[in-house]
Amino acid sequence: MEGMLIRKVLLLLLMLVLLSGCSNHGIRIHNDSADASKAEEILKKDQRLTSAVILFHEKDLLVGIDVDTFSRFHKKKIEKEIKKKLEKSYPDLTVTVSADRKMTIVLDKLIRKNEKDMGKKIDQLKSLLKEET
């Protein structure tokens, strides 16, 4: 009976691993104020990222990143590194980088809907990210 149970667990784990293979890669960009090519390059160079969303809006540059499984341990460090690089390339813009899922969810939504009150939504998102548990 024990053997059966263990085999079932292994099968379950295998399925989970296989399922995990199907995640969307690539970089989505929304641009209405500045040149995005530099940002894209910085993000593409980083091997630890699996996907990213870039959004330029007026004086804001928002970047949502998705890091690969084991890099998640250093999520905070990666955020900081990318933020520094982006700030160097875009000195006039306020840069916000986050690996939080909420960031990508909201940015994707904003890009899709292309809403008018984007500025307000962005401010709200920024304050959300500052909250601690």
């Binding site: 939080d100 899922r101 909420k102 960031m103 969810i105 959300l128 990210l129 909250e131 601690e132 548990t133």
Partner: peptide
């Protein structure tokens, strides 16, 4: 937690509550 992140104003950090 993903549900709270997607449909409410919670981040990864705050959705644990």
């Amino acid at each position: 937690s993903l549900f709270y992140m997607t449909y409410f104003d919670f981040t990864e950090r705050t959705s644990s509550n």
